[in-house]
Structures are given as structure tokens and as C-alpha cells.
């Protein structure tokens, strides 16, 4: 560190060499750390899939890095078990798809309202939406549960899990940021002169232009709903209507004698894999979307 101060011309070349050497050393350390962290991130999914192909007895006795031969028998056992994961997959898909579409469409509509029109209270509504952004759903869950279960008698109904996604402040915030830099109002004006209705403009001009942002937000909303355990666990108790997270929780509390580890690993693979596949396809856009959220303006 002393070499960094008061360099004379004579010392400089020596310092440069030292510097490039230390740079190379940092680079080596950086790669080692990155590879180790990557392994730490991926090893769980590797072990999950490997163990989904092994039998209960094999898993119980020793560790293995290579797949076994019991995938098909695990699959058959899983489908005959009382915890129906294929049904859970469909249930989760129904809820996650409908709520993510609602989230994205209505967030776009809300963002368009604030962005494209000038009306009294506009600023207030905008600040209000930002202010409620951080309220956790758990805070209102007691009143929500009471309303759904005691007032509307809608336990085991998917609507209370889907409809609230219309109001999604975080998605709104991402979309309005994107709208500010990617929606030329001149296009909207031109469509108006051509006699387009406002709803038509939203659907035929704004929606196609917003597509990249909407796609990323659709994935985030889908994953958020797919992985959600808290609210569904409170509202769903009918076996046929259980979603994947509830089924996974049931694996944990299943009686000791019903436990087949191969089946458990396979069931979890089914719950986790769809999200991994979607992520790997769209990773570039998703990682970009996260960075976008970081530079809030």
C-alpha cells in the first residue's frame, strides 16, 4: 500500500508490474469465488433431481452424485399417493396464470391513467400508490381472512387468491417507469386524430409498445403467485384444491410411515422445475428487469 503514495518516475514501472500482478491475483480469486458461489446456488437443484431418480432405500443409506434407476417407479408411486402433485400443478397454474395476467394488464391501465391524462388529484393518486407499495399482505391478512371466510363464505375458492392481484403497486411502478421512456405521446395523439377510442388506444397502441416490460413483469407476477404459500394456506383446505406450496407443506407433516423420500424429491422437482425452465429461457430479460428496479428515478 505504501507504493501507492508519492510515486517518482523511477518507481513507476515497477509499480505498474506489481499492479498488473495484483490485478491478475484478484482475477483468479474472483473466478474461484464465483465458481464456488455458482455451485452453492445450483447444487440443491442437482441433488434434488438426482434424488428424484433414486429409491427410498438408496437415499436413506448413502450419498450419490449420479442418478439412480427409480424415476419411473417414483413417478408411479407419486401418482397413486394421496398428495396429488399433478392436480396441484394444474391448480397452481390456473391461479398463477390468471393473477399474473390481471396484475400486468391492470397495472398497465393504471400506469396509463397516471401517465397520459391530466386530471385533478392525479399527483395524489400517484403518491398514494407509491405509499402503499411497501405494505406487506400479512398486515391485512386477518381482516382479509375474516371477510373471505366469515362474510363471503368463500373458503376453498380461488377468486380471493386471484382478484386482489388487480392492484399491484410494485408492478405499476415498474411499468410507469418504462412507459415514461418508451411511450411517445405523439403516437397516442395520432391514434386519437384517426378517431380511436381511449380503450382501443390502450389495447392496440400502448400494449404492443409495452410488451418487453409486460413480459418481464408477467414472469415476476407468475412466479410470485406460483410460490405463494401464506394466503393459500389460510384459505384452502380441501385436498383437491391444494396448490403446490400447500402440498409441499403436507409432505413435511405427512406421517412417518407414508414417507417415501424418492417420491418426495420427485414431487418437489415438479414444483420447482417449471419456474427454473421459464427463468432460464428469459434470464437475460429478467436479470435486466431486476437492475431496472434498482435505478429508481
Amino acid at each position: 500500500m505504501a507504493t501507492t503514495e508519492l510515486l517518482t518516475n523511477k518507481q513507476k514501472p515497477q509499480y505498474e508490474v506489481k499492479k498488473s500482478m495484483s490485478m491478475a491475483a484478484i482475477k483468479v480469486i474472483a473466478y474461484i469465488v464465483l465458481v464456488l458461489l455458482s455451485i452453492l446456488c445450483l447444487v440443491w437443484f442437482y441433488l434434488l433431481i438426482i434424488n428424484a431418480t433414486r429409491s427410498h432405500a438408496e437415499i436413506n443409506t448413502k450419498f450419490a452424485f449420479l442418478p439412480g434407476k427409480s424415476l419411473i417407479s417414483n413417478w408411479k408411486k407419486m401418482n397413486s399417493s394421496s398428495l396429488n402433485f399433478m392436480r396441484g400443478l394444474i391448480n397452481s397454474a390456473i391461479i398463477a396464470l390468471s393473477s399474473s395476467i390481471l396484475t400486468v394488464y391492470f397495472s398497465m391501465m393504471t400506469a396509463f391513467a397516471i401517465h397520459a391524462y391530466r386530471f385533478p388529484g392525479r399527483k395524489f393518486f400517484y403518491v398514494f400508490i407509491l405509499a402503499i407499495m411497501m405494505i406487506p399482505t400479512q398486515v391485512t391478512s386477518l381482516g382479509f381472512y375474516n371477510m373471505i371466510v366469515n362474510t363471503f363464505n368463500m373458503k376453498n375458492n380461488y377468486l380471493p387468491l386471484i382478484l386482489p392481484s388487480i392492484a399491484a403497486p410494485v408492478t405499476f411502478f415498474y411499468i410507469i417507469q418504462y412507459m415514461r421512456s418508451n411511450l411517445p405521446m405523439s403516437l397516442v395523439e395520432a391514434a386519437r386524430i384517426d378517431g380511436a377510442m381511449e380503450v382501443g388506444i390502450l389495447n392496440r397502441i400502448v400494449l404492443p409498445l409495452m410488451r418487453p416490460a409486460l413480459a418481464v413483469q408477467l414472469i415476476f407476477a407468475f412466479v410470485g403467485s406460483w410460490n405463494n404459500y401464506y394466503m393459500p394456506a389460510l384459505l384452502i383446505n380441501e385436498p383437491k384444491k391444494r396448490t403446490l406450496p400447500i402440498l409441499i407443506y403436507s409432505l413435511r407433516s405427512a406421517a412417518e410411515k407414508d414417507k417415501d423420500l424418492g417420491v418426495q424429491y420427485l414431487s418437489m422437482t415438479i414444483a420447482v422445475l417449471p419456474v427454473i425452465v421459464v427463468y432460464l429461457i428469459f434470464a437475460r430479460y429478467i436479470v435486466g428487469g431486476v437492475a431496472l428496479g434498482g435505478v429508481k428515478e
Binding site: F106, S107, M109, T110, F112, A113, I114, A116, Y117, R118, F119, R122, F125, I129, I132, I135, V139, T140, S141, L142, G143, F144, N146, M147, P160, L163, P164, I166, A167, F172, E198, L202
Partner: peptide, 26 residues
């Protein structure tokens, strides 16, 4: 510009029914 209000309706109705009212009850 009245469409500004109309387009805000879904968000705020949803918020009132599924968040604000439950919060008041809580």
C-alpha cells in the same frame, strides 16, 4: 381526461375491497 379516472377505477376498487377494508377490520 376523464378517462384518467375511469382507468384508475379497477385498481382503487380492488385496493378498497381487498386491502383497505380488511385493514380497517384488522
Amino acid at each position: 381526461n376523464k378517462w384518467g379516472y375511469i382507468f384508475l377505477v379497477p385498481f382503487f376498487v380492488t385496493f378498497l375491497v381487498f386491502s383497505l377494508w380488511p385493514l380497517i377490520q384488522t
